[in-house]
Design a protein around this nucleic acid. Structure first.
Length: 650
DNA sequence: ATAGGGTTAG
């Protein structure tokens, strides 16, 4: 978003013409200042800069009040070139030491990414005030250097205590805005101890009752992973405003606490005393997406339509995301088409949506449309494109877009891109190419990258590379037993029973047990949860006997249970039992029993679906004549007529 | 007379 002088002059706007007609002969500096300020406040930053230029053309002498707004407009445009020119002008007229001017300059340099310049202005400013300090703090936070921001705050407090004994007028005190900027630094640092320390300062300074500060604190605690503290702070906010509620709902939604998010939303509507808005609905929709609560999602969608927000980009995009993640990619597409001013996130959501359903062609078509609409794809867009290719096994296309991303769009690939590529190459059997790619990575490969390689090693029976990957995984994620099980199974496939035994002993000695699988199914607006071998459900006896019946029919149809997903040395009968009670089967059975014949069934699972469940559900779909949609931890499976949309490639 | 730093979301 660079602005040059030429583009400034070239810019035209009716707004501009109006005020030129009105003010062009005005030789009053105050009037010009008002115009510049009004335009800056209205967000017409370019026009504001043009007004400044026009004023200078008339050889009018700016005063100290001319500069802050002009500089603010440069900041809004991230235009450091114009910012520096304005700085020079302020210097020429001798206002660069004015505290209003210097704080605007600090803010401008910091937001434009030049912290060194910001620091220089700060150091050269002899009389600093709370705004100068706050600008530095915010600047460091926005440049992802929260700890330095916190150091500034410490210095600020020290400074404050030195001034604090005096007469009052020129004292530099922490105010609410400064306090909040420090809390944003805490969010960014994501450090619990730091946040608690600053929380102490908040109370000590008497901001404990301040709603806005409470809101920011709620967010800060959640970023530290301490949602419990967030809730506590939220509960203690005396006068909750819409942002308090929105923040708390978003916190729950982002931490996968969907039920709590929805409950908070109901509480807000019932007795919150505030009106919900587009932001609220976006967070609620995110919860629906996570928990697959399609019915609730639809209700929110209705509400959105009533509020006239459907075509609005933020809510519209949330609805697209919700429908995709609840298995209704067609409905998502229709909503997507109605969004008026689609931005990069809207396009990306649609691409990701098609991708996770295995519709790589559609995903790529949307991507082409996006490029044609002159929307510049970003880092996440390419994650979605590559992931779509990986779900469909499109090796050449994936490789092409990986290269295009780097060379044409100059996006440095991150772990997400690499994990897609490793998955794509590995599953296609190019294990060494995948490994070479990992070795060339500039960022440290994470557990997803090595996990993709390990999974591919199992598929293509490569013990040597599997051991290399597993070693990395044990280091990166030592408590996750999935990798130990996978490696044990790879040894078993290779007949290396001693190694299998070693793995089992290791797991036992380290108290590692499998992440329990669970599945969700929403019926009549209520989400039901099933665990592996669940006996908690009030109807569990009925469910088990119905499932038994279904499995008999499945075996009559010629299916032999597949045991490769279970550790090899459990005896056969026990294995069959373990398989039979996987949570997705329970959820599917329960859903068939409790829904209208012929209707589509949607199930969500927290782990990947196992091979046996995959085969069984294919046949169940055929036997009961239903469409069954299962979302596992990585993608969707649409079961119908005895086959699955993933084409058994997953 | 005119002026600077600001919390929630996809």
């Amino acid at each position: 978003m660079k602005t040059t002088k030429a583009s400034l002059v070239a810019a035209t706007s009716s707004h501009l013409t109006t005020f030129f007609n009105k003010y062009v002969n005005t030789t009053n500096v105050y009037s010009w200042n008002t115009v510049i300020a009004d335009l800056a406040r209205a967000g017409d930053s370019l026009e504001s800069l043009l007004a400044f230029a026009a004023m200078r053309k008339l050889s009018l002498t700016p005063n100290r009040s001319t500069f802050p707004c002009t500089i603010k407009s440069c900041t809004a445009l991230y235009d450091i070139t114009s910012g520096k020119q304005t700085h020079t002008q302020a210097f020429v007229f001798g206002f660069h030491n004015d505290v209003f001017v210097s704080s605007a300059l600090i803010d401008m340099y910091a937001k434009c990414g030049s912290l060194a310049d910001a620091h220089k202005v700060f150091d050269e400013t002899l009389v600093k005030n709370v705004v100068s300090w706050t600008s530095m703090i915010i600047g460091y936070v926005q440049n992802k250097r929260p700890y330095e921001a916190l150091c500034f705050f410490k210095d600020f407090l020290r400074q404050e205590s030195l001034n604090g004994d005096g007469d009052g007028d020129d004292e530099v005190c922490v105010d609410a805005v400064a306090m909040r900027s420090v809390l944003v630094a805490c969010s960014s640092a994501a450090n619990k101890n730091v946040t608690q320390g600053v929380h102490g300062v908040v109370v000590k300074k008497g901001f404990g009752e301040n709603t806005t500060i409470g809101n920011t604190l709620v967010d800060a605690y959640s970023k530290c992973g301490t949602v419990g503290f967030s809730k506590k702070v939220f509960d203690e906010i005396g006068e909750k405003d819409v942002i308090s509620w929105n923040t708390m709902i978003a916190v729950c939604a982002q931490h996968g606490m969907s039920a709590q998010a929805l409950e908070l939303f109901y509480a807000m509507v019932r007795d919150g005393g505030v009106r919900y808005n587009a932001v609220t609905l976006s967070s609620v929709l995110l919860s629906c997406a996570h928990s697959g609560a399609l019915q609730t999602g639809k209700c929110i969608h209705d509400q959105v339509i009533k509020m006239g927000l459907e075509e609005e980009v933020i809510v519209g995009t949330s609805i697209v995301d919700m429908y995709c993640k609840c298995g209704r990619v067609g409905t998502a597409r229709r909503t997507f088409d109605r969004i008026k001013r689609k931005n990069v996130l809207s396009w990306t959501a649609m691409i990701a949506g098609y991708g996770m359903h295995g519709y790589a062609r559609e995903a790529l078509n949307v991507f082409y449309e996006m490029v044609q609409a002159k929307i510049v794809p970003n880092y996440i867009t390419f994650v979605s494109v590559l992931s779509a290719c990986s779900h469909a096994g499109l090796v050449d296309e994936g490789w092409h877009w990986f290269q295009t991303m780097r060379h044409k769009y100059l996006i440095e690939p991150g772990v997400e891109h690499y994990s897609c590529m490793v998955d794509l190459l590995g599953r296609a059997g190019f294990l060494n190419r995948a490994y070479d790619l990992i070795k060339k990575m500039k960022v440290r490969p994470d557990f997803v990258v090595w996990g993709s390689l390990l999974a591919a090693c199992r598929m293509h029976k490569n013990v040597e590379l599997a051991e290399i990957s597993a070693r990395q995984l044990f280091e990166l994620d030592p408590k996750n037993c999935g990798y130990y099980v996978l490696l044990a199974n790879i040894y078993a496939d290779a007949g290396r029973w001693e190694d299998v035994q070693k793995m089992r002993v290791y797991m036992k000695n380290h108290g590692l047990s499998k992440t329990p699988g669970f599945s969700l199914v929403e019926l009549k607006g209520r989400v039901h949860v099933f665990l592996v071998g669940d006996k908690e459900h009030p109807d569990h006896e009925k469910i088990y006997s119905y499932l038994e019946e279904l499995c008999m029919k499945v075996q009559e149809a010629g299916y032999v249970p597949n045991m490769t997903s279970v550790l090899h040395d459990i005896d056969k009968e026990e294995k069959e039992m373990t398989l039979r009670i996987h949570s997705e089967k329970l959820a599917v059975a329960y859903a068939i029993m409790n829904s209208v014949p012929g209707s589509t069934i949607h199930v969500i699972k927290n782990l990947r679906i196992c091979g046996d469940c995959h085969e069984t559900i294919k046949l169940i779909a055929k036997i009961v004549g239903r469409q069954i949609v299962v979302r596992d931890s990585k993608r969707f499976h649409h079961f119908s007529e005895g086959s699955c949309s993933c084409g058994d490639y997953w």
